[in-house]
Lab assay of single mutants.
Amino acid sequence: MLDDRARMEAAKKEKVEQILAEFQLQEEDLKKVMRRMQKEMDRGLRLETHEEASVKMLPTYVRSTPEGSEVGDFLSLDLGGTNFRVMLVKVGEGEEGQWSVKTKHQMYSIPEDAMTGTAEMLFDYISECISDFLDKHQMKHKKLPLGFTFSFPVRHEDIDKGILLNWTKGFKASGAEGNNVVGLLRDAIKRRGDFEMDVVAMVNDTVATMISCYYEDHQCEVGMIVGTGCNACYMEEMQNVELVEGDEGRMCVNTEWGAFGDSGELDEFLLEYDRLVDESSANPGQQLYEKLIGGKYMGELVRLVLLRLVDENLLFHGEASEQLRTRGAFETRFVSQVESDTGDRKQIYNILSTLGLRPSTTDCDIVRRACESVSTRAAHMCSAGLAGVINRMRESRSEDVMRITVGVDGSVYKLHPSFKERFHASVRRLTPSCEITFIESEEGSGRGAALVSAVACKKACMLGQ
């Protein structure tokens, strides 16, 4: 009897593995994704193909990295998701002549009506938060230079001027797309009239992360975010950046690689679950690469896999709870928690219980395998993109072996128990001629924006502006 049951459990697990095998990517698959990513990057950089390229390769006008001589107080704003952060950054000489960066910050959550109302409502709310922060720190009387981390696709015309191309991540505030974001912020500050600010720089969160990590390690020339969304930036040779005049030196390019796949480059790798996630998203047909990796989508992918296993009578005796059938019910943090389970399955059992399920031991094991399959594919897909960037940098610099540091931020990278190990191992397999160091950014977005502002202020002083 026991043997029969054991055989049935083994057969069930084997069927589960057959279904989950769809998520496995072979090294040849990853090399294919990497080569296609490089081709799209090239198209994004070139003037004649930029418009139709899915990977936009947006110039950021960040050319210099901090040298350690900029000092002063800077205000930093960070808008990239449902939370908005205001930070005071003091850049100065530390002990023994070292450079020191001290920060104080406060988080504000953005109400739904500000995210989806008008641009005026959104930026009025942001300036209200700045006003509140300055009151708390008794700094209303000071006109501070301000660095703005704005983590949406922007076409820069200068370091302090950028046109919002399109909202992502659930934002829909009308009247912002096609307009200068810094102008919208300046107008809102003017409307309030109770404080003055000098907006000197606007950067993407990947750029802010790279600059913040450069402060720790001067070989950091790539910034990457794996959180709600997924994106990367890197220092490109100016001669390859056709959208900006000049051939000397390097400029940081914001790849906006989340949109890779929007022209069909990933079609052969998309599964039924991916198509369902895409169809029910706020932007169907867009940001397809990001939807395979980002935390906004990972939990939902797992939920759809679990429903398939229920329908195949391989999980929960073929019956799903009402909660499990509800879109968004299986949160991405559950994926991390399930994979963090120590082996007694308590954590998995508790999560499934909150979803109205009474799982068996085998159910718990199957749910864990589903989570591992989805998150491992995410790590491997992400590795193909980064390997594409790094191999490109090595080739354009004609280096036999390139040493490089990548600064990384984002909740999936930082909080998932195995993502970074799987990701690092896969990147290294795909970049055999590179020695890569990964560092995690601390308060990256805010500190990085302030350091970019410090560079901009120093330049302005040198130019006598």
Results as ranks from 00 to 15, higher is better:
V244C: 09
D198W: 09
D217H: 11
M87V: 06
E319L: 14
L2F: 11
M402L: 09
E236I: 05
D217I: 00
I189Y: 03
S54T: 15
G80I: 02
P66G: 15
C382S: 07
E96R: 09
V241F: 00
Q219C: 12
Y61R: 03
I163G: 03
L122R: 07
A384D: 00
D344R: 10
K56R: 04
M238D: 05
E245L: 12
S174C: 01
V154C: 05
F123G: 03
F123V: 02
A379Y: 00
E290N: 05
A10F: 15
D73Y: 15
R428Q: 07
S445M: 00
E248F: 14
Q337L: 10
V182F: 05
G410H: 01
F423M: 12
N204H: 04
M251Q: 14
F316K: 09
F316R: 07
R155Q: 06
V455N: 15
I404L: 08
C233Y: 11
L307A: 11
G299I: 00
S100R: 10
R192M: 03
V374W: 03
V406W: 00
K414H: 13
I110H: 05
E128H: 10
V207C: 12
V91M: 12
M41H: 02
I293Y: 01
F171K: 02
G170V: 01
M210V: 01
S280E: 06
I211P: 07
G227A: 15
G356T: 08
T65R: 15
R377C: 06
P432F: 14
A370P: 04
A370Q: 05
R447V: 15
Y61F: 11
K172C: 10
N254E: 00
D311F: 02
P153T: 01
M202I: 04
E236R: 02
D158L: 02
C371K: 05
H141S: 05
F334N: 10
R155G: 02
G44L: 04
A173Y: 00
H141Q: 11
E17I: 12
I163A: 03
N313Q: 11
T437E: 14
D160R: 01
E242P: 04
V33K: 02
Y125E: 01
R447C: 08
L20D: 06
K169Q: 04
I436E: 02
R155P: 02
A173S: 02
M139S: 06
D365M: 12
L58W: 14
Y215A: 12
L122W: 01
V335K: 00
H424M: 11
D42G: 12
L266C: 14
E268N: 14
E256K: 01
G318P: 15
A370G: 07
L134G: 01
G97K: 07
Q24P: 15
V253A: 04
M238Q: 10
F171L: 02
E237S: 07
L306G: 05
R447I: 15
N180C: 06
H137P: 07
K172Y: 03
A329R: 14
A188Q: 01
R428M: 08
S109F: 11
R186P: 02
T431H: 05
Y234T: 00
M235I: 07
V91C: 07
H137V: 13
